[in-house]
């Protein structure tokens, strides 16, 4: 397992910086549209995540930063 991960990392180090992008900058108009943003309205997304986190056992990996909610 260690050998596989090390090999992958080595491959990335030696070739990662020179990978030819398969989506060119001029082809990214759709991706740049605000409707494609993962968090179009950060203040709203942060509030919604807080609503869920305060009422659910699960937490984390929701795209927001931890902030000591004092949810009890």
């Amino acid at each position: 397992m260690r050998l596989i991960i090390s090999s992958l990392l080595l491959a990335l180090i030696t070739s990662g910086c020179t990978i030819e992008p398969w989506v060119q900058p001029y082809e990214r108009a759709n991706l740049a549209d605000p409707i494609m943003s993962f968090s179009r309205n950060p203040v709203s997304a942060s509030y919604r995540n807080h609503v869920f986190e305060a009422r659910e056992g699960a937490r984390g990996a929701d795209g927001s930063q931890g902030g000591g909610c004092g949810c009890n």
């Binding site: 990662g16 910086c17 990978i19 992008p21 930063q65 931890g66 902030g67 000591g68 909610c69 004092g70």
Partner: peptide, 23 residues
């Protein structure tokens, strides 16, 4: 971040780094 209630005070520090790569 600082969060204050009458019975709960929380202080949180955050550090992050992000990097664009591969074109």
């Amino acid at each position: 971040t600082n969060s204050v209630e009458n019975d709960y005070v929380a202080n949180t520090y955050h550090f992050g780094i992000s990097m664009d790569m591969f074109g």
